[in-house]
Simulated scan of single mutants.
Amino acid sequence: MSQPPRPYVLSLAGFDPSGGAGLLADCKTFEQRGVYGFGVCTALTVQSDVQFERVQWMPLADIQAQARPLLERFGVGWAKIGLVESLAELPELLRWLRAQSPAIGVVWDPVLKASAGYDFHAGPAPELVAEVCTALALITPNQPEMRRLWPAAATAEEAAAVVSAYCSVLLKGGHAEGSEATDVLYQNGREVARFTTPRLPHGEKHGSGCVLSAAIVAGLARGESLVEACRSGKAYTARVLASNETLLGYHFQNEHEYANP
């Protein structure tokens, strides 16, 4: 018996051979979250879950060439952008995506540093952050990334509130202290929702931010509100974090397996 059509989503991200982060992690998440995921490679990395050696970047023209036939053939409603070489080229990429699919929604997971230990980007200029975020539905930075994106703010929370005037911000709480990990959603300069799960003794996972942002994109593509998508995405990610004691998490096939972490 055939299944009903799934929504189409697109990940523009780096290729991580370990499968913990980037395109492979995104597509695993998309599949388990009930959407059909396309992948456009923005970078080829040489890494494992604990070591980063080097990266080969894809030029913007090649990124567009990969995405063009997919956007021409399929109705892609949502896209996620992860690792890219040039933050200065992000506005051009966003304008191009919207020219191909005017109604597309875009979530940016600002990968500024690899969890395996490699700095990709210094903090961009505030004017660039504002220009990029105005074209987005959501950004999903962790606390160090948020501080790097908006260093004029005294705290990551203050930075998230400021940037949420341009687009919604989900400030991830994995780098905070305490027995619980809380992600906070900001919109229009204020906090609107919190999403909390227990902090696990072996919960650190390579690529957890990729999984969360991909899970949120899948929820949005399935018709969930932003708050609902953040909540269900957090729940799915919590199950991946709890799946084993290594740095590479396992994904889950059935919706009920992550509905109540």
Rank of each mutant, 00 (worst) to 15 (best):
P4A: 15
P4L: 14
P5V: 10
R6G: 08
Y8V: 09
Y8I: 06
L12Y: 03
G14S: 08
F15A: 03
P17F: 13
S18H: 04
S18T: 08
G22W: 00
A25P: 08
A25E: 01
D26I: 00
E31S: 13
V35K: 08
F38H: 13
G39N: 04
T42E: 00
A43F: 02
T45I: 01
V46L: 12
Q47T: 11
D49F: 02
W57Q: 06
L60F: 09
A61Q: 13
D62Q: 09
Q64F: 06
R68Y: 10
L70N: 07
L71C: 11
R73P: 01
G75N: 15
G77F: 11
W78N: 01
A79I: 07
I81C: 04
G82C: 08
L83P: 00
V84H: 05
S86P: 03
L87E: 01
A88S: 15
L90N: 02
E92P: 04
L93K: 04
L94W: 05
R95E: 14
R98K: 14
A99R: 13
Q100C: 14
P102R: 05
I104V: 15
I104M: 15
W108C: 02
W108I: 00
W108Q: 01
K113A: 14
A116W: 00
G117M: 05
Y118V: 00
F120L: 14
F120W: 12
P124F: 05
E127I: 00
C133G: 01
A135F: 01
A135S: 13
P141E: 09
N142Q: 09
Q143N: 11
W150F: 08
A152F: 11
A153E: 06
A153Y: 10
A153F: 07
T155C: 10
E157W: 04
V162L: 04
C167L: 06
S168P: 03
L171H: 02
L171V: 07
L171N: 07
K172R: 04
E177G: 04
E177Y: 02
S179C: 03
T182Y: 07
L185S: 11
Q187T: 13
R190A: 15
R190Y: 07
E191W: 01
R199K: 14
K205Y: 06
K205M: 11
K205I: 09
G207C: 02
C210L: 10
V211N: 04
L212G: 03
A215L: 07
A215T: 08
I216G: 08
I216T: 11
G219K: 06
A221Y: 03
G223M: 13
G223F: 08
S225C: 11
L226D: 02
R231M: 05
S232C: 13
K234S: 12
A235L: 15
Y236V: 11
V240N: 06
L241P: 00
T246S: 13
T246E: 07
L248P: 14
L248Q: 13
L248N: 12
Q253T: 12
N254W: 14
Y258V: 06
